[in-house]
Write a protein that binds this DNA or RNA. Structure first.
Lengths: 347, 347
DNA sequence: GTTAGCACTCGCGAACGCCGAGTGCTAACA
DNA sequence: TGTTAGCACTCGGCGTTCGCGAGTGCTAAC
């Protein structure tokens, strides 16, 4: 059986109403609330069909209908109109993230916060994946006699710091010398650049400080490739508590626990490349504890290359169109900020 | 009326039982559970007195008694035996924070996490207050043509970074030169050191880069004095949800909201100098939304000078002795780590 | 001062019954 | 053939009632 136009309209009404009220809705209420020009009995028949097809379900035998995951999926895939944020809304969003956007941690934190504020759901943002960036600068700063801070500047303004403990103290001049060699040698390098040959050549350039190369490259590569070093920023976790579907404490606790694990979050919102916004609904979700949630996620990027992810987590009864448009706006904003920071090509 | 020994014993029993079970306790249960050698009727009389004196209250007319804030206060002030963590426990605690403790943000984050893990309450840790630290090093790192990263290293391994936007691009050599002058001039300086005379002398040393001093000093001082730049690390917020006193969603939400505000947290756990652990019970609390909570807090320090605070937030029905001992252990641990990092005096 | 006894209180959970929103089915209608 | 009115039926939610039990205060006797 195919969905005829009236069935689609009714499904639409059910979904919209349920997103707004979180209450099961019955045929009579639909007939009254929305004007289809048919009686409740007709709607009842259609709803019976819709249920048989799996788009809606009845929580209890004698109660109204509620959209199923399949229903949301159909809604999202074929019925939902995607709208972009209008000028004013985009400007407002930009305003929200107006501080020191030159520091990546600030930018990420504020993005997560703004997104949570605008959607009223929980948001997650991952820092740019370093293995896709290029090193722009690397410098050593003395912390104390035996500890050196490695400052790593990459494309897309990601600044990472690591500390290194050394046996032999190094003075300002010595660190400067090493910094200069490393900064110039590594500039433009990416993860793949660190071949044995490359390292050897840099080691030569370092002269008597050649012994420093190994620990530094070790620390840098470790930072670049290790996923556990990717910072994840969450915001609005408490927003979830206001939804009636999570008013059961145990359920709420389970979800909050799941959202507390960095690894879970990363796997949750990371996605393959591609421009599009991806929507994961309820049971489609791989994280078992979040089977009552939907996730809407997208990648931000620089020059077509995906850098990191940004996602919104809410109940399956989510305001999909709104979140999609806000998310798109947010990605646009990050991309713009990162792009402004990109080294300009010589004319 | 004074508290005789038996009354104290009974109060102790009520508090210990309530901390463990969160259930009001009656005279008969006390008589059965604890062996006082008197009948429930006697205990009943004593409890009646204790209630009259305000140490315990009756939630409902026909139910057992529960400690009041005044009761907890008495318990904490005069009855509670403070015990230190034993060797093994302290070693365990040290183990928990074994990673890269050279970076202050990591240290703070891990401390908060470990404390939450060991107490099962919510914990808050503030970063060292910069106006009490001394600058150890300051260096400039190029991010791109127009943006410079200022790396500020202070005592107690606090590393802060700020970005500065400049009109005229500066090359590696130029930044190095400026870094050298600033690093050596500022070394050992504290907030009070920045007198006009001092700045003038540094400006002279900078020669043709003298114009850079003002924005840099501005950024540094701003970072040092602005409280909003103090980072606050929270952990275990969800722990609160498991307590029956917060099983009411609205209450839980209110508390989570309060704990979301950085400013609230700072004022909540900051305390005057002094070695001792401070305990704030229920209504004594200044934050209205946390009137059902108790806060146990302490300062960590370096050479007698308080740097930052560390606190535990839980229901008034908190395991005070345990939290106090864990908190003391944690402070001892931070102090030790910070102290190891202190520049050694020349012998 | 301590205790046993007793009448009284009251929160809580179980049992019960009603209301209303909702359903499916059938028969009549356009 | 699709639509509608009518009707019997279902069942979750809610308010009421009621008994239980933990607890209390008071009194009188030890």
């Amino acid at each position: 059986m195919l969905l005829n136009e009236r069935k689609i309209k009714i499904l639409d009404a059910i979904i919209k109403d349920y997103i707004a009220t979180a209450e099961p809705i019955g045929s009579r209420t639909i007939a009254k609330k929305f004007d289809f020009g048919v009686s409740s009995a007709t709607i009842r028949n259609e709803m019976s069909d819709l249920e048989e097809m799996g788009y809606i379900v009845q929580p209890h035998l004698s109660s109204g209908r509620v959209p199923s995951d399949k229903g949301y999926r159909y809604y999202v895939d074929t019925m939902m109109k995607q709208k972009e944020l209008d000028e004013a809304q985009f400007a407002f969003l930009k305003e929200l993230i107006a501080g020191n956007i030159n520091q990546i941690d600030y930018l990420m934190k504020e993005t997560a916060k703004a997104l949570a504020f605008m959607t009223n759901y929980t948001t997650v943002v991952t820092e740019p994946k370093l293995d896709k960036t290029r090193i722009r600068n690397l410098q050593l700063v003395s912390v104390d006699e035996h500890n050196i801070l490695i400052i790593l500047v990459t494309d897309a303004k990601v600044v990472k710091q690591m500390t290194l403990t050394v046996e032999t103290p190094l003075g300002f001049n010595e660190l400067t010398e090493i910094s200069f060699v490393l900064g110039t040698s590594f500039s433009g390098a990416s993860y793949e650049s660190f071949t044995p040959e490359f390292c050897e050549s840099v080691e030569k350039k370092l002269g008597r400080y050649g012994y420093m190369l190994e620990p530094i490259v070790g620390a840098v590569l470790n930072t670049i490739i290790s996923e556990s070093n990717t910072d994840v920023y969450t915001s609005g976790v408490k927003n979830l508590l206001s939804f009636p579907e999570f008013s059961d404490m145990d359920k709420a606790r389970t979800i909050l626990n799941a959202l507390d694990e960095k690894q879970t979050l990363i796997s949750l919102i990371s996605k393959e490349d591609g421009e599009t916004v991806q929507i994961v609904i309820g049971e489609e979700n791989e994280v078992a504890h979040l089977r009552d949630c939907s996730i809407i996620k997208a990648n931000y990027s620089l020059g077509g290359q995906s850098y990191g992810s940004i996602g919104v987590i809410g109940p399956t009864r989510m305001d999909y169109p709104r979140v999609v448009s806000v998310l798109k706006g947010m990605v646009k904003n990050i991309n713009k900020i990162l792009d402004n920071n990109k080294p300009k090509q010589a004319p």
